[in-house]
Amino acid sequence: MGQKFRQFIDNFGYTRIVIILFLFVLLVSAFALELQIKSLLSGILIRTGMNLLLTLAMVPSIQSGTGLNFGLPVGILCGVVGAVLSIAMNLTGGQAFFAANVIGVLLAVVAGYVYGLLLNRVKNQEMLIGTYAGFSVVSGMCMFWILAPFRSPKMIWPYGGRGLRVTVSLEDTFGGILNKFLFRPYKWIDIPWGLLGYVLIFCLFIWLFSRSKTGIAMQTVGSNPRFAEAAGISIDGMRIVGTILSTVLGAMGILVYAQSYGFLQLYTAPLYMAFPAVAAILIGGATVHKASITHVIIGTFLFQALLVVALPVTNAVLPEGNLSEVVRIIISNGIILYALTRIGGGD
């Protein structure tokens, strides 16, 4: 019995057990402090839903052996451009969302291919170079937002600034389109079935893909390139496939995120989008060499739940001053750090 329990803990990972316990303590104290439990729980679900695809984007890149995709802003920008174009075309509702996705994905395929070519040239340095490539592309796109020829009244500055607004409201276009779809309030929790369903479909799709010929080939490249070579699989080709998929998911992910958030964020916002996704998947138990859908779901859930619950609870416990935010920074980064020191420690 003890043996089995130990094995279970080993499999699940101390990090996650620690976080779950911590989360549990937080929820219990939230209950004790008479916080809005329903709103907290619903918040966790919505956050998980809106961030899931961005975290999912890490899976193809890890599986194909390029590590964590710090170049995720590349994909995100494709999605944002898609959304901007769909607004510029004066589309609304489902049409706008669909059009944004189609354009975003098309751009992401091209961008992902180019980015993949770059990554193939810099094997073993992908993560560092991805970070800088992301920074650079975001800055480059800032110029685009300034110089872009769109004149849609929804997007231009109200006081005569050149270019597009920093945040574009999606209220009249596709804001909340997934969040509101099949949204069902229950006694203890509100469940956004539409949002969760939508993102889970993509999880399912990636799961299915990982069972296809190409998917298996891609994972083989990631887990043992020499084996893959001996099995007649093109290593560079599969890495490109992984990067394209990751970029596409980034593009679709930001659209899910934006419709839930209600605003489209241009300029420097995409810069910071990769870090929460990276943190989430690491916390989920993935390593830079191995990741699965389970890691994505568990990780996104835990990471986001921590963000949702930790601050209100610490706020309630420490109502004076801003100690709560500092405590949150220390704990959440500390846990990521802890997870990282586990990578080298073997399994």
Binding site: Y257, A269, Y272, M273, F275, P276, L307, I329, S332, N333
Partner: peptide, 8 residues
């Protein structure tokens, strides 16, 4: 300005 950036 923290690790989650403006979106967080």
């Amino acid at each position: 300005m923290g690790e989650g950036g403006i979106p967080a």
